[in-house]
Design a protein around this nucleic acid. Structure first.
Lengths: 352, 352
DNA sequence: CTGAAAGCGCTTACAG
DNA sequence: CTGAAAGCGCTTACAG
């Protein structure tokens, strides 16, 4: 395996010069650079990332933590992040929590991040207080996406979940619905995941603004999955007179709701309207009305914020800051817009 | 940042002994090991991966290459692979091709894999002859999943695509269908992706076995996506009398087909039956009949095959072999079983 | 079972 | 603009 000495010998320069020429540092004459590049090319030389990182003190790697890579939002975010990072020469170390305590520890414990990555991206990952302390103590730059814990000094990219919940609910109100149910959230989430709380708040505020008192009997908690939506809807129907519309906290739950309604012999939207949040890949196929959120853009923007401070080639301990003027740690999150997409799953309630 | 010298000093041993004790090598006395572990714990010591890899010559990292992480099959495979690798202390470097030439080069060129990973996993990735040569020249162990190129000496985990296509088609034949269309494949795929060819072969063989001559007019090529299925079906309907059933090469295409049929005013399954391959997360929601394939199992098994040879802690140049007796490079692929899942999208054709 | 020493392949002040 | 030398933080023969 050819190393830097081989290249230096062939080019007739020192290894220091090879290192500089290959990294494009300005302090190398054009002629020398040409010779070095030619030698490297001829020898098929590839720099050893480990040696480079050890000597240089930078890992050129970012840890990306997601709850479940197979869910639409997280897969889409990771794809955009991966693209942006690789573009700048950074590697992406993927941590898929998948509800396993062991994985949480692997990722979040000092020992594992230590010396291994230059920065951390947390996607919708709520941390326990102790974990948060540990992470902050590392002094790494980082960024968070969507809900979950804020880390002191780390910027955050997200949508306004309260507004999204409000828009979805108002769409149903505008169609004439009054009995609007909400399915959402994970009741057993010890980790204070705030997404479902925010979206519910948007729902309740929209109802109140329309003069409707939110009915707890029309509000069912479950999980952010197809199955969760299915179960919540089944439970809802078991409680008595069905609502004329359901606002599901995400498209995957909405899909489960559609399924449950159909199995109960109710038609969508003739008997019950359904709206979700996301604009999942399959929302179009299913004709699902939804509040579209820009998942890829959130990933891309968060990655850029991470890379920006030092020209996209380096990360310093100060890297975790939004490059805008007026920026400071703990600054307000960067909010990306959402958009109502009306398809076939929502319609006015039947006249009775 | 505390290093191995700090630990050695505190424990009163050499750095060599610290290294051995921490890695659990057997040549350390119990008492010494205890002291070292205590010292490491007390100092919150974490080994530097880069230094360890540079000195040890192993990267403890596997490159995983997928066409698109956001597609169901690939996301599910990666999730299982990640779990298995992390379990054994390996990192996963994700490469998401996403049709971009640049990314192909990043991954596949010697320069990038060189010194960076211990092994490579190719998921349904077809390689050009030159790329194949380059990859083989690296002498790395590896494994392939699903279709795509076989690399000499690398084992392969997959399903039998011909059989899957046959089973899907026979299900439709058994229901009484005779005019069975097929939508599949990417006509512009210069990379000889064989999945669609195999599944089509299963389709054609099943038809012939039933005494039916495959009709090219009922066979439309498109892409392995929802949109592809949508377009292929629209094209199919434009050709004249619709088939009574459609076999789509994957569930995402089948979903697109269902959508296109519905938009054309045709009911599924009353007017046209639809079956896919995969058992996508949403196949149940959509009531889609399909041939289920074990995506997570393929990922898990492939990762285990990669890790197995040296007890899951190391990889050698010989690591890319199936650990079974009778094993040799170029051996037959490990075939995992598929299973017909009948839901609501397939039914007997209407009597005319 | 343990240690001293060399070495992995780079990058970075420092000096010129 | 370029080079000699030290150093990054480990692991691995080698010797005992």
């Amino acid at each position: 395996m050819t190393n830097i000495d081989d290249v230096a010998r062939l080019a007739g320069v020192s290894t220091a010069t090879v290192s500089r020429a290959l990294r494009g540092l300005p302090t190398v004459s054009a002629a020398t650079r040409r010779r070095v590049l030619a030698a490297a090319e001829q020898l098929q030389y590839a720099v050893s990332p480990n040696a480079s990182r050890l000597a240089g003190g930078r890992t050129a790697t970012v840890a990306v933590v997601v709850p479940r890579i197979t869910r639409w939002f997280f897969g889409t975010v990771v794809e955009a992040v991966e693209d942006t990072l690789h573009e700048s020469g950074y590697d992406l170390l993927l941590y898929n929590l998948d509800g396993r305590e062991r994985t949480r520890q692997r990722v979040l414990r000092t020992a594992n991040l230590h010396k291994r990555v230059d920065a951390v991206m947390l996607v919708a990952t709520p941390l326990r207080p102790a974990e948060l302390t540990e992470l902050a103590a590392l002094g790494l730059p980082g960024v968070t996406i969507s809900s979950g814990s804020r880390v002191p000094g780390w910027p955050c990219v997200r949508i306004d979940d309260v507004a999204a919940g409000g828009t979805a609910t108002r769409h149903l109100l505008d169609l004439g619905h009054r009995r609007i149910a909400h399915i959402c959230g994970d009741p057993h989430d010890e980790l204070a995941h705030t997404t479902h709380l925010d979206r519910r708040r948007g729902y309740q505020e929209a109802l109140r603004a329309a003069g409707i008192v939110p009915d707890p009997g029309l509000d069912v908690e479950s999980q952010f999955t197809i199955d969760g939506g299915n179960r919540a809807t089944t439970e809802l129907l078991a409680r008595g007179e069905p609502p004329t519309a359901i606002f599901a906290a995400c498209d995957e739950m909405a899909m489960g709701a559609v399924r449950a309604l159909r199995e109960a012999g109710l038609r969508v939207p003739q008997d019950v309207s359904v709206i979700g949040i996301d604009d999942h890949d399959l929302a179009g196929v299913l004709g699902l009305s939804t509040i579209a959120q820009p998942a890829a853009e959130q990933g891309r923007l968060a990655a850029q914020i991470l890379l920006n401070p030092l020209g996209g080639r380096e990360l310093s301990p100060q890297a975790g800051r939004i490059p805008d003027p007026g920026d400071d740690p703990g600054a307000a999150p960067v909010i990306l817009p959402t958009r109502l997409v009306v398809r076939e799953s929502t319609a006015p309630p039947r006249a009775h």
